[in-house]
Amino acid sequence: MPNPQQCKFAKTHEWIASDGTIGISDHAQKEMTDVVFVDLPKVGLEVKAGDACAVVESVKAAFDIYSPVSGKITKVNQAVSKKPALVNQSPYENGWLFVIEKSNPAEEAVLLSLTDYEKFIEEETNGH
């Protein structure tokens, strides 16, 4: 169970833990409102950093989930398929989406720390 303090964040609101577990941030789940469906990638899929590889749906919107890093999908969270509300209830724990085997750890350099991510959200919100 990753601690958000130790995760890295993408500006597209995904987090990634050191073991390659990926989910969406607490801020993102609030913005999305009630998640009603999660479409997860197939295990074994090779993705590049920035590829849309999952979709999270609310009643009135659909959100692409972009992989923060390149690699191969090794595991997906069947629990969120059955109970999408987990994404809202527990974005950093039970609501994780998939695990990736990173092929290029250097890519993580462009990702943000929790503090920087929170700063980024604040700027974005004020910008509007």
Binding site: F37, S58, V59, K60, A61
Partner: peptide, 13 residues
């Protein structure tokens, strides 16, 4: 229901 499949939400997707 299940409107997230549809054009008014998903547009070209």
């Amino acid at each position: 229901t299940l409107q997230a499949r549809e054009q008014h939400i998903r547009r070209e997707k």
